[in-house]
Amino acid sequence: MNKAELIDAIAAESKLTKADSKRALDAFLNATGKALKKGESVVLIGFGSFKTATRAARNGRNPQTGKVIKIKAKKVVKFKAGAELTKKVK
């Protein structure tokens, strides 16, 4: 499912217009991004939680040349599915 399909699904489920659904989805994505950037976690009970973690610097290998390269440390976003979402997927 891509973003356009998700907007269509939100509109159908919530009886909102597609334009309102797009604004709601964009607002959610912006708010989530801002919270994660500040180092906060976003917890949606039943759905799951988003949080940031720091991935340590490490050595990697260029697959074309086999040469060892250094990969810098960086922040990554992690998602852990909630119990209700896990049940729906099974």
Rank of each mutant, 00 (worst) to 15 (best):
L36K: 03
T65H: 05
G48M: 03
I45R: 02
I10L: 14
A11F: 11
A53M: 12
K67D: 09
D26F: 05
A31Q: 11
T86N: 10
K88V: 13
S41F: 00
E13K: 15
K67V: 14
A12M: 13
E40R: 01
V68S: 13
S41H: 03
A35G: 09
V68G: 01
K51A: 14
K51M: 11
I45F: 02
P63H: 07
R61P: 06
V42K: 03
R55Q: 15
A9S: 05
K22N: 04
G33Y: 02
A53G: 15
K70D: 13
F28Y: 01
K37H: 00
K51R: 15
A83G: 09
G48H: 03
V76E: 11
A81Q: 08
L16H: 08
M1F: 11
S49W: 01
K18E: 06
V77C: 04
V42P: 08
D8V: 05
D20N: 10
D26C: 07
A53C: 13
I7Y: 04
A83N: 13
G60T: 09
K88G: 09
A4K: 15
G82F: 04
T17Q: 07
I71F: 01
S21C: 02
L85D: 09
K78I: 11
A81M: 08
I7Q: 05
R61I: 13
V77F: 02
K15Q: 04
S14W: 03
E40C: 04
K18R: 13
A56C: 04
K38Y: 01
F50H: 09
F79P: 13
A12R: 14
L29Q: 14
E5C: 07
K51V: 06
F50A: 09
K51T: 12
T65V: 07
V43M: 00
A83L: 10
I71H: 00
T32Y: 03
K67P: 06
T52M: 12
V89Q: 10
K78L: 14
K72D: 15
D8N: 11
A31S: 14
L6S: 12
N2Y: 02
T32P: 07
